[in-house]
Write a protein that binds this DNA or RNA. Sequence first.
RNA 1: GCCCUGGUAGUGUAGUGGUCUAUCAUCUAGGCCUGUCGAGCCUGGGACUCGGGUUCGAAUCCCGACCAGGGCGCCA
Length: 437
Amino acid sequence: MHRKYSNELCPEMDGQEVRVAGWVEDVRKLGSIAFIILRDREGRLQVTAIKKEMGKERFTELITLPRESVVEIKGKLQKSAEARMGFEILPTEFKVLSKAEVPLPLGVVDKVNAELDTRLDNRFIDLRKDEVRAIFKVKSLVCAGIRNYLLGNGFVEVHTPKIVFAGAEGGATLFEVEYFGRKAFLAQSPQLYKQTLMATGLDRIFEIAPAFRAEPSDTVRHLSEFISLDVELAYINTSEDVMQVLENLVAATIEYVVKNGEKELKLLNCEVRVPKVPFRKIPHRECLEILKSMGWHGGVDIDTEGEKLLGEYIMQNYGEEFLFITEFPTELKRGTFYAMRKDENPELTGYFDLDYRGQELTSGGQREHRYEKLKTQMLENNLKLEAFEPYLKAFRYGMPPHGGFGLGVDRFVQKMLNLTNIREAVLFPRDRLRVTP
RNA sequence: GCCCUGGUAGUGUAGUGGUCUAUCAUCUAGGCCUGUCGAGCCUGGGACUCGGGUUCGAAUCCCGACCAGGGCGCCA
């Protein structure tokens, strides 16, 4: 007899023998009868144990199982007006597959909430809650939506190394690893590799992979390990071409999630809106003017508060959630040595950020593909060219114009689902203080 | 790294110098109950982060460490 999930059973199967298995979520004892709520991947069902039918010993063994024990039950499905699902299972046989210790470090259905830290320490139990698992089903849909769009538009999925010879932007935020007696690093971004691939004929590539940052950031939107979607495309004319791919990708991905994740979004109480393309694009300098008119006291860079205000601004004035901040001044992108500056105005780049509900989700733009200019910009940053030789070499033997972006997948999920902390969107988050579980 | 706030049963909390053999809920153990579904009722159980200090007396005040929550910088 095949094991059935709870959603494969129905009142119309009245009288059939069935086999089910799952976690004992709750036992409601009423003396000679007890109701066991059994939870599996798909939902819950009620097992009704009756003492005089089972015999005192087996009855007691079943109904005294600690909560969250795993049990397999064979029994007769019976239509029932009293049971929530319209049916219940009268056990004839059962097998305890795994008894749970008491007390639980974290309740699954307790009537008190647990703090995030407690939940993360006991993530495997935390994930037994439907609404917590739903976050990761949505995340899976986000990745599927991304792949679906990109593969359908001529992009090739690639994998670049995560143990690397140099960082993308200097050495301050790199995790060092000992590599057979030599010094290597965990990749903070696939930047150098995805650019290198533009010199190969793959032309349009993407990667969904972890990135590592040793920044001592301590916020609800930073992690030391996060999932980065990186996209790079060759033979572009300007950063506009990159933005177009990005906005279409984001809109298509959200549409995919809305279409396929209806149940999860409802469970999470989230209304996700599919954005219209093209997204609004406002140059950096105009953003500063808007912010000043809103009473913002910032400098030349848009800070966290500025981002939030801009998010409110486009929501109030246009009812939109996405905003491209374009034409970042060179001054702010100097560290991004590979950013192309405008030939007609070297003080500006074509670089952009994409903000989602007032938070940065992506940055990208056209890269500098001309060897001499790239070298000059690297020297400006005091980078040792020898250390970047494997990267630079790719620019000397035919490198087409190209550009791309990196998008924080965890952050995308966080903003989409309105999660207050990015850690909620990561199964086992890594931050400055947390390396376990 | 900086600023603010906090750390009390398994979980979540009340308690700001003696009235604390520390509150409440949840949980847990046992009991009653054949229709529960946030089951109900009865009886038990379980905690002051660690190390110094002040004081006749510290969960409470001070110092340090560790940890957590939020904010900033930076970023995805």
